[in-house]
Design a protein around this nucleic acid. Structure first.
Lengths: 243, 243
DNA sequence: GTGACTTTGTGCATCGGTTCACAAAGGCGT
DNA sequence: ACGCCTTTGTGAACCGATGCACAAAGTCAC
């Protein structure tokens, strides 16, 4: 497995970079968007300064965790006072790469793709839907949310002309891998997958998965456990009474 | 904070239960649905037996992790052979609580709620959408995907009459907490939240969050890092050449 | 029946993430 | 100007999850 090892080399080299703010833990990155959202909320209410305690409460985490997370970005707080809302929001935005706009394409114009295309949450923060795609030729020429539905063949030019970097897959599971392959072939290296299946991609391509069904099943597990616990408690009471 | 302590007591009592298959790690639970999906795929192709290696590949994990995960449910494999597809699928289903049907209600009939109501993935495995709700009286009397849109006041009877246990929130962020409170008040203890905000709920209620925007921001972070890395590599080459 | 072979289940080392607790750092009142 | 008080940033302990490597356990061929 020499190839794998060699692929990791450049990263190692980079970590020797003097501007090395390398290695923000994944768990931290996953929470930064929530912090950013909380900060935006404070800003909208005209609050200019928050303590780690307040911000943590708004984001639903412990203050120690928040402080450790933020410490990975740098030292943007003032001891005895807290964090300046605007400044911290900017720093997090910059770290997440939201100071630039990311062109996004949505593939698959079924129910979900339709809803995603119309979803305003995209535009609000750093993302811009530049194209809607579908394999079904019947949908082409049609307009959804002000954008024409294009064939998959449009992909390469979208990447080179529009700088497309992020693809959203909203197709049925059966076509997801094929669509994914086409995205990757066109040069897209970040994919958000709504199809309930595992995508296999080459090294260097990121895939994140959002899956309704999985989330519901996890809820069901806990729900069942709660039911069993309630039943168990009843049994215990019954036994205690009968004794 | 005595109350909190007392609330945890029944659980402790249960863990002393002889049939204690307690404490399946959260990380494992989160992967079980994927294993189940992979197994269903094998079953559909008529494959009756798989090794941990094959199943792990299909689920996108390492075989050691798969085996350790499965070991938490019991010893359902046969050494030297592998796992019997149907049997393992049944065991996982049972563990996840999918041998019964879970009634689900979707609140918020905007774009997303609409798409979710029409999503067939719900019905496929253990879940049944029993009600669609919206605060907007204009939508009532309307039918979506064969179900009438009901007012929030219908909640209590849904819980008692239909055994509603899982609520899906697909409203804008502004109304999400209010809707959540109403769900909890009606007795719903498991909530899937699509609104981009933190929900505060009492002890004993589970909330899972699905957030587009967050996922995109995480992708953007990695994408930016990739761009920077590419730029860094170019710079390094340029420097090497100029020297 | 026996031995070789395959694959599971798991003990152990390791790693990343969380929590705790406190020293360092700064503002603010007097 | 000075000391008190608040809040950050972080070292260290802790905890859960992952990866490794192998003994145990079973099948299958002969």
């Amino acid at each position: 497995m020499r190839t794998l090892h060699e692929l990791k080399e450049p990263e190692k080299t980079l970590s020797a970079d003097p501007s090395a703010r390398r290695g923000i833990p994944d768990a931290t990155v996953a929470r930064l968007p929530e912090y950013l959202r909380a900060l935006t909320g404070f800003a909208e209410r005209g609050i200019t300064s928050v303590s780690s305690e307040e911000l943590a409460a708004a984001a639903g985490v412990r203050s120690a965790k928040l402080r450790k997370d933020l410490s990975h970005l740098g030292s943007y707080g003032v001891r005895g006072v807290g964090y300046e809302v605007d400044h911290l929001a900017y720093q997090i935005s910059r770290e997440l790469g939201l100071t630039q706009d990311w062109p996004v394409a949505i593939v698959g114009m079924g129910n979900l793709g339709h809803a995603l295309a119309a979803y305003s949450g995209f535009a609000t923060r750093g993302f811009r839907v530049v194209a809607l795609l579908d394999q079904d030729t019947v949908l082409h020429e049609q307009e959804i949310a002000g954008l024409p539905v294009q064939p998959m063949e449009a992909l390469p030019s979208l990447v080179t002309d529009q700088g497309l970097a992020i693809g959203v897959i909203a197709t049925p599971a059966a076509s997801a891998q094929s669509v994914c392959d086409q995205l990757v072939a066109a040069g897209v290296r970040s994919i958000l997958n709504f199809a309930p299946c595992v995508l296999v991609v080459p090294e260097g391509v990121d895939v994140r998965k959002v899956d309704l069904s999985t989330e519901l099943q996890i809820l069901a597990f806990h729900e069942q456990r709660k039911s069993l616990a309630a039943q168990g408690a009843l049994d215990a009471v019954a036994e205690a009474v009968s004794r």
